[in-house]
Structure formats: C-alpha cells, structure tokens
Simulated scan of single mutants.
Amino acid sequence: MMLIIVILISTIPLTTKAKQPVPNTNMFVLSNEGLPFIQDKPLHNGTVLQSFAFDDENKHIYVVQLMAGGQQLPDENEPVSGAIRAKNGDVTLTKLDQEGNKLGHMYLKGFGHGVQIGVEVENGVTYLWTETDAVTEGNDGWGTQIARFPFENGTIRTPDSPVLEKHKLIEGADRTTVNIDKTHGLLTMRYRLDGSFRYGVFDLEQVKKGNYHPIADVPQPPVGTFQGFASYGTYLYLLEGNAYGVNGSVAPYGNTYVTAVDLNSGKAVARQLISAGNAMTFREPEGMAIRIPDPKQPHKAQLHIGFASNAAPNRLANIYYFDQLMPINSNHHRCSLLKENH
C-alpha cells in the first residue's frame, strides 16, 4: 500500500501580495508519482548534492555540493578539512549531460551553502547564478548577495574574481539563494531579513541592468527542514525534508514535502508528501529546478526534485520530475484530499 497525501491550504496568513501580476500559470500536479530523470550518478566530489539547475538550450545539468574535505587546490598550501570548507562556504560545481555523465567542474570558494542555483544562457554563453560573499554562521557559510558568472571548466572562483557580476537586491538581507524562471524572464531570490525568510521576484533583465524593483515579495510559510525552491510563473515551490532516520523521517514514506505558494496572493495553497525515490536506503531531498525539454515550447515545463543517495563518502545524485499541470478550472484552492492507492 502506498499512501499519498495532498493538503491544500487557504488559511496560512501570508499578507504580502504581488506588486504587479505575476505571469499566469497552472500549478503542477504533485500527487502523481515522480518520474526518474537521472539515478545514482557520481558528482565531482562525494558529498551530498545541494541544488541543481538546467541549461535547456545545451542539454546540460549543473549541480552544486559542499566541497569535500581533504582536498588541496592549487592556490592552497595544504589540504583543507570538510568542516573548514563548510564554514568558509566552499562549494564544488559539476556539469553533467542529461544522462548524468560528468562533463566538467568548477570550485567556488567563499560562495555559500549552495541551497539553490540558477542557469541562464545569453548569446550562446552559459551563466550560473549563485549566492556569494559567504559569512559564517554556526558550522556553515551562507551567501549575502547573488552573483552571475560564466561556466569555465576547471577554474577556481572566489567572491573577488573579476568575472563575477554581483547583485545586492535587498539591503540588509543574508542567506541569499536564487532561481531563474527562463520562460517568464524572472529571477526569484530567497533571503533572510530581520530573522524571517522571504522570496523576492524580479524581472531578470532589469536585475542585470541594476534595477532592483521586485514584482512580488512574499513570506516563507512554515516548513520543515528547508532543502530548495523553484518558481515558474504564478507558483513558487518549496522543498523540505530529511534523510530516513532524521527528524521523524521513516522509510518508505519519509517526510519530503513540496509546498506551493501563489505569488500573486502570497498564500500557500498546497502541501504534498513526495514518494519519489522511496526505495533508496539513503534518501535526502536536495534542490529543485524547472526544466523545459523543448525550448521551442517553453510552456511545456517539468518540475524536478533532487535526492542524494548512497553512503558517505560516496554520495550520488538523483533527480525526479513532475510534468502534469492542473486543469484550468481546477478548484484546488478550496479542496482537501487524502487518498490511498492499494
């Protein structure tokens, strides 16, 4: 028996509405079984993937992870432990093809935790959007602004690298992470301000020109252990959960949920238990991204969710996806559903 839970919500008091209408789209159907995209693929390091993003034009995947301990890079005097890497915000970026085969890598020192990244292709050049300028808090480094830079295989980048185009979208914000909605030309930044997490949605081209005026800015609703986000048109999708054995996550159901937020109203409208990949012995949700299989049909989108598998120190990357959107007349804002499939 497989238990699938959908909770559709209208009572969470989120007060901030969009300053102007966000492009209208339907919500992904998250109650379907997630379909596998890549499974058990090694990255450049053996640490858990943190997040990923798609280059749909060139059919590539970019994945970030905390840099593994024990490595000594050419600009370092000795090997550096994993704990120091985490405190410094050092991450490894791996480039994959769409079958999950490794094509290249970069090292990003002092960038942050890699909670979420974005990809943009302009004039044939692939650019990464990430957090940068990490500040240590607890045992980890977290970004304080966002950066855009081209992928260049085998290189090491720091926050001072001249190729970085930096953007401080909101003064005083930290824990900055980013998603790119290529179809609608939007950039969404998750950030923390005055102790609370929020999401600002910006016109991507205006951001690149230095004009930082959000289209929408909404609070994060209550979630468990946050693991990533993606936005596509009207909806913002939030990933939460833990590996089996942590915070009440028990095989085979676990505690991986996706919450959908309507960016026009600022309200959470759905929360779905995700069963994809539940046969893994180690299964930790990590990262979300939108993929457009055919760039000529940008509205045929897929929502992808990442999971780490296998034992340390050789974690592997997995990605599952959802590709069905709710019907136009779906009454999902006012429904609750509890369904068992036998």
Rank of each mutant, 00 (worst) to 15 (best):
residue 51 S to H: 11
residue 181 D to P: 02
residue 338 L to I: 15
residue 34 G to E: 11
residue 122 E to F: 01
residue 237 Y to W: 10
residue 79 P to Q: 12
residue 129 W to D: 02
residue 179 N to Q: 10
residue 261 V to H: 01
residue 71 Q to C: 00
residue 18 A to W: 02
residue 6 V to G: 01
residue 53 A to H: 04
residue 85 R to V: 00
residue 38 I to R: 08
residue 152 E to H: 05
residue 299 H to R: 11
residue 111 F to P: 09
residue 6 V to F: 01
residue 275 S to R: 06
residue 200 G to R: 04
residue 229 F to R: 09
residue 76 E to P: 04
residue 331 N to T: 13
residue 341 N to E: 14
residue 316 L to F: 11
residue 173 A to F: 06
residue 144 T to L: 08
residue 33 E to F: 09
residue 146 I to Y: 04
residue 120 E to H: 04
residue 244 Y to E: 06
residue 339 K to R: 13
residue 284 E to W: 08
residue 159 P to F: 05
residue 121 V to H: 03
residue 191 Y to C: 00
residue 3 L to T: 11
residue 290 I to A: 06
residue 36 P to A: 12
residue 132 T to V: 07
residue 28 F to G: 14
residue 252 P to K: 02
residue 252 P to N: 02
residue 121 V to S: 06
residue 36 P to W: 08
residue 336 S to E: 07
residue 174 D to W: 13
residue 32 N to I: 11
residue 21 P to T: 01
residue 325 L to E: 10
residue 119 V to N: 01
residue 312 A to N: 08
residue 95 K to S: 13
residue 208 K to L: 14
residue 285 P to D: 07
residue 13 P to G: 08
residue 228 G to C: 12
residue 94 T to F: 10
residue 82 G to C: 02
residue 212 Y to G: 05
residue 300 K to E: 07
residue 293 P to T: 07
residue 157 R to K: 13
residue 274 I to P: 00
residue 312 A to F: 09
residue 183 T to F: 01
residue 257 Y to L: 05
residue 185 G to C: 03
residue 200 G to T: 01
residue 299 H to C: 03
residue 290 I to L: 06
residue 176 T to C: 14
residue 31 S to C: 06
residue 37 F to T: 00
residue 292 I to V: 12
residue 182 K to L: 07
residue 143 G to T: 10
residue 179 N to P: 02
residue 160 D to V: 05
residue 221 P to N: 13
residue 31 S to E: 15
residue 39 Q to L: 15
residue 24 N to D: 04
residue 297 Q to C: 07
residue 68 A to H: 10
residue 223 V to D: 10
residue 332 H to Q: 08
residue 5 I to H: 03
residue 227 Q to N: 12
residue 334 R to D: 05
residue 40 D to S: 15
residue 36 P to D: 00
